[in-house]
Amino acid sequence: MPTMPAGTLYRGKVGMWSWVLHRITGVAIFFFLLVHVLDTALVRLSPEAYNAVISTYKTPLIGLAELGLVAAILFHALNGLRIILIDFWRKGVKYQNLMFWIVIAIALIAFIGFAPRHLSHVFG
């Protein structure tokens, strides 16, 4: 009976899924960044144009999407630090699995701190 491969740093388990999540969140943040540079550029046009577009960021639907954006940024930023540690810290590879769960824990705590406050601004 063949046994299941144990998985490596990059195949299966935490190593692979953190890589997948890093890509997905990265692409999402990239497309937001394109829009965000354009909407901010409207300050050069007129106060009315900027305020009109930025008011859509305060609607319930986009307000909820911002929660997703912040969650994506939190994961991508903290997992990026984990990647730096894997590459440059002598014990990085040894602790990459533990570091993934530390990333998730810190991201979750920061998100729980942010979400109610943001929702109260959007819906309050």
Binding site: T40, V43, P47, Y50, N51, I54, Y57, K58, G63, E66, V70, F114, R117, H118, H121, V122
Partner: peptide, 17 residues
């Protein structure tokens, strides 16, 4: 921009200015 003060609510031309 999103956490301090009034968060997203406070963002307008005057805020950026």
């Amino acid at each position: 921009n999103l956490f301090a003060g009034e968060g997203i609510k406070a963002i307008d031309f005057a805020f950026v200015g």
